[in-house]
Amino acid sequence: MTVAGSPPAPDDVDALVAAWARERPDLDVTPLLVLSRVTRLARRLDRARASAFAGHHLETWEFDVLSALRRAGRPYELSPGQLVAATLVTSGTMTNRIDRLQARDLVRRRPSRSDRRGVIVALTPSGQTAVDGALIDLLEHERVLLAGLNPSDQELLAALLRTLQARLSD
């Protein structure tokens, strides 16, 4: 199958797989055809995302926390534990991140109404402005990155990646 109707040009992954196949003909190196591309695409995507966020004075991790709060819906609040689960970091890392975001007036802490010992993290108006603007720029950057794939190829790729991610999550 070809993407967008034309055969793809060989790339750096094809070259490295060919080199491994030459040097280690005893090994099946075909997983590298997929996963080396995923790794390289992830690095490029990280750079593109960082560029989109930089225009809003946000680091990637800051966007992750702020977007988790924004996606929670009004009143845009979550517990630190919920933020840990949403961003896949440790609780110590999250505490540090909340401290840094609070120092920039992007979030605020308040006592939990349901747990006297608990804390709730809330998105501030400036945090909402920053995350909303960064999301708009992120989506534009990502549309450009996907422009080489037609909509049905994008749907197929999303489905295949979802399947792979589900298997890795188990």
Rank of each mutant, 00 (worst) to 15 (best):
residue 52 A to V: 06
residue 104 R to V: 00
residue 155 E to S: 11
residue 21 A to R: 15
residue 142 E to M: 11
residue 86 A to Q: 05
residue 37 R to T: 00
residue 83 L to E: 09
residue 11 D to L: 02
residue 56 H to K: 06
residue 42 A to N: 11
residue 82 Q to Y: 01
residue 112 S to N: 14
residue 106 L to F: 01
residue 56 H to R: 13
residue 55 G to V: 07
residue 54 A to Y: 00
residue 42 A to E: 14
residue 142 E to C: 05
residue 143 R to A: 10
residue 107 V to D: 01
residue 8 P to V: 04
residue 72 A to T: 06
residue 161 L to R: 05
residue 107 V to C: 03
residue 162 R to T: 13
residue 165 Q to E: 15
residue 101 L to Y: 00
residue 126 S to Q: 15
residue 144 V to S: 03
residue 86 A to R: 07
residue 165 Q to H: 12
residue 148 G to E: 06
residue 19 A to D: 12
residue 128 Q to I: 12
residue 30 T to F: 01
residue 31 P to S: 06
residue 86 A to W: 01
residue 29 V to I: 07
residue 162 R to M: 06
residue 95 T to E: 07
residue 136 I to C: 12
residue 76 Y to F: 11
residue 20 W to P: 15
residue 75 P to M: 09
residue 100 R to Q: 08
residue 136 I to P: 14
residue 106 L to M: 08
residue 143 R to D: 13
residue 163 T to K: 13
residue 108 R to C: 09
residue 42 A to G: 10
residue 39 T to R: 12
residue 41 L to Y: 07
residue 163 T to I: 11
residue 101 L to D: 00
residue 117 R to V: 06
residue 121 V to G: 02
residue 63 F to I: 08
residue 96 N to L: 14
residue 137 D to P: 15
residue 31 P to R: 04
residue 45 L to K: 09
residue 68 A to M: 03
residue 62 E to F: 00
residue 98 I to N: 05
residue 8 P to G: 05
residue 53 F to N: 15
residue 96 N to W: 04
residue 157 L to A: 07
residue 96 N to P: 09
residue 126 S to A: 10
residue 1 M to Y: 00
residue 89 V to N: 04
residue 150 N to R: 09
residue 95 T to H: 13
residue 123 L to S: 02
residue 137 D to W: 01
residue 46 D to T: 10
residue 159 A to S: 15
residue 103 A to E: 08
residue 74 R to H: 08
residue 97 R to E: 02
residue 18 A to G: 10
residue 45 L to S: 14
residue 164 L to S: 09
residue 100 R to F: 00
residue 26 D to I: 07
residue 35 L to T: 09
residue 46 D to L: 15
residue 62 E to L: 05
residue 38 V to Q: 09
residue 104 R to A: 07
residue 161 L to N: 06
residue 24 R to A: 05
residue 120 I to G: 03
residue 26 D to C: 08
residue 143 R to T: 10
residue 167 R to T: 06
residue 148 G to F: 04
residue 170 D to P: 11
residue 22 R to G: 11
residue 98 I to M: 07
residue 142 E to W: 08
residue 95 T to I: 10
residue 88 L to R: 15
residue 142 E to I: 04
residue 152 S to F: 04
residue 83 L to F: 01
residue 3 V to L: 05
residue 83 L to N: 01
residue 129 T to N: 15
residue 111 P to E: 03
residue 36 S to W: 02
residue 109 R to N: 03
residue 141 H to N: 08
residue 85 A to P: 15
residue 10 P to E: 02
residue 154 Q to E: 05
residue 39 T to M: 14
residue 19 A to L: 13
residue 100 R to M: 06
residue 30 T to Q: 08
residue 73 G to T: 03
residue 54 A to Q: 10
residue 17 V to E: 03
residue 135 L to F: 01
residue 66 L to P: 15
residue 96 N to S: 13
residue 143 R to K: 14
residue 34 V to C: 12
residue 32 L to F: 03
residue 47 R to G: 07
